[in-house]
Design a protein around this nucleic acid. Structure first.
Lengths: 332, 332
DNA sequence: CGGTAAATTGGTAGCGCTGCCAAAAAAACC
DNA sequence: GGTTTTTTTGGCAGCGCTACCAATTTACCG
């Protein structure tokens, strides 16, 4: 079965129907340059009558800059990225930009391939997660001449624009908080750190801070695969089976922490008296459980918004630190 | 501050550098048509040396069909849509298609505007949620000649391709399950139904089924705004304040149901003996709480995958029913 | 009212690539 | 060796639109 492209109405046809020149139609439609009210009406009437839909492919090719913004994100399962997209898409839509995306699965090689594919669309900007990229990716982005925005990680050199916060600081403050609360036998439950380098950074500075206070990490449990509530539950179960005398556990993020929380709930482990739990991200659900989750709230939506605003405004290279907020909660 | 587009390498320059014609370069790069091995090497060397990145904007304009797929989705907060995107994007990436998206916020007027903006990119297909659209949207999509895929709702007439399941059936089966379990005094907690028409369909057929079994809905609590765990918690709290003798509550989805679950947990309301809880969606987290949530698992990722596959294969118009699965769980 | 400034308008050359076609080169055949 | 086939190639006309410039019309002024 075949499905052919319907013959589309072109700008030239509209111009003819309205009895004006092509460039006049173009000006009216983009509301750019000058034209009389009467002309405007005639053009709009013709557009309406013919059901004309401008062809942005042609428009973009003819003009220089495109209104596409390309997102190359690690995952759509991790709520972080939909949140960033959400913040960005609102701003982009207002400014008549289009968002294009692809998902790398936390694979730097795939990131490179997908970034290349994105560049082929000559976007106004490419948005990437974090500041660790392959040499090829960096070279390509540099050469492209389009704006590059690195999101959610300020611990590194930015190529152009960076918006987010310091994951190292987040790890550090999490550790400091637990220590301040008096916990000394602290464990960690996390997901695959080689892939999620931001989680890796949090973890390493978390450990450094513990070391600096003579309360080194007692045990850790790293699970394969993506972060999830189920993995968090399983991770804590395994960790406690090996090491029973922990007084607090730091999780790679809230999903994992919730899993840990539920494990304790199911096993009757008192929180936080018997075991404290600390997460990362500040998901809404963490506030709705019986004991609000102690965690760090990250500005995910704002990261997307600011990033989009900077792109739309064609702002100069800069790093914008949006910080994060430590939520004391009731689980630590 | 100004940021100019770097002078980009064009196919013509590659052709010149490689000492061959433009069309030869084009053929080699697309691996289409015939060329000798030696030519291929020379072209690839030039591409490498100059760092050439093909311009898909130009390519798409010159050829007829594009490899863009446009998603016009209601929300990115509701995990349903990221899940669909996830399923679709994997398939699309494999086939070298690009995903473009925009978010309507459940506003049909905005859907129309965004669909129009999408059509301007002459996508190969437009994917929309549900089968309720404004007259203008329908007219525009019909006229566009591009493929249209309606997702996650089979209760209505499809424009072209539809992939999903019946929300009415989901509502019906949920009611039947609760009745079979012996619950008779049933309430409902939901979010804004005018906007989320699929939740509305579930709710109305849920009620019809209750009516048909002489156990009409006892009470309902509809919250403004989007579905969320916090709203579910609040909704149940309000509902129980008004109506204390319920034996089961149906929630508009799992987020809301989890809120209800946590409310019971915090208030010491025994589940399911004192109050049963039933959700919708089958989120992973529902399986990780101490008592697995009774719910309906929907094929969200598969919906995206199948939709993308059909588009890539340019399949004929059809409705694909992926069904859903009732999970008995432990909360009802 | 002549003349200059300002506001409108249309023509047209590309934007970078693909598709078509004919030319050239290589391979196959008698 | 001379054809006939087959394989490779290059040239060039668009794809539909925008940017630029020149032409035209209208507004304004002394």
């Amino acid at each position: 079965m075949e499905f052919k492209h319907q013959p589309t109405v072109t700008l030239a046809e509209v111009a003819h129907a309205a009895g004006v020149g092509e460039s006049t139609v173009s000006r009216v439609l983009r509301n750019h340059g000058s034209f009389s009210g009467r002309t405007r009406e005639r053009v709009m009437a013709a557009v309406e009558r013919l059901g004309y839909v401008p062809n942005r492919i042609a428009g973009t090719l003819a003009s220089t800059g495109s209104r596409l913004v390309a997102f190359v994100i690690p995952s759509l399962s991790n709520i972080v990225f939909p949140d960033v997209l959400r913040g960005a898409s609102a701003v982009l839509e207002e400014n008549r930009y289009q968002a294009v995306f692809s998902v790398t699965d936390y694979d730097p090689g795939k990131e490179e391939a997908l970034a290349a594919a994105m560049l082929a669309w000559r976007p106004a900007a490419v948005m990437l997660a974090g500041c660790e990229h392959t040499e090829g990716t960096v070279k390509m982005l540099r050469a492209s001449g389009c704006r590059v925005v690195e999101l959610l990680d300020l611990d590194g050199d930015a190529l152009d624009i960076a918006v987010g916060f310091s994951n190292r600081a987040a790890g550090r403050e999490s550790a400091a908080f637990l220590l301040k609360r008096g916990y000394r036998r602290i464990g960690y439950v996390g997901h695959d750190l080689n892939r999620d380098t931001r989680a890796g950074k949090r973890f390493s500075s978390f450990c450094e801070t513990l070391d600096a206070h003579d309360a080194p990490l007692v045990a850790r449990e790293i699970l394969e695969g993506a972060s999830s509530v189920e993995n968090g539950r399983l991770g804590l179960e395994r960790l406690l089976a090996r090491t029973s005398d922990l007084d607090a556990v730091y999780f790679s993020n809230d999903d994992m922490a919730l899993g840990g929380y539920f494990h304790c709930l199911a096993e009757g482990i008192a929180i936080p008296s018997k075991l404290a739990i600390f997460g990362y991200n500040g998901l809404d659900i963490g506030r709705a459980i019986p004991q609000p989750l102690s965690t760090i709230r990250t500005p995910r939506v704002a990261t997307g918004q600011i990033a989009a605003q900077l792109v739309v405004a064609n702002a100069p290279p800069q790093a914008v630190d949006l910080g994060f907020e430590l939520i004391e909660g009731a689980t630590a």
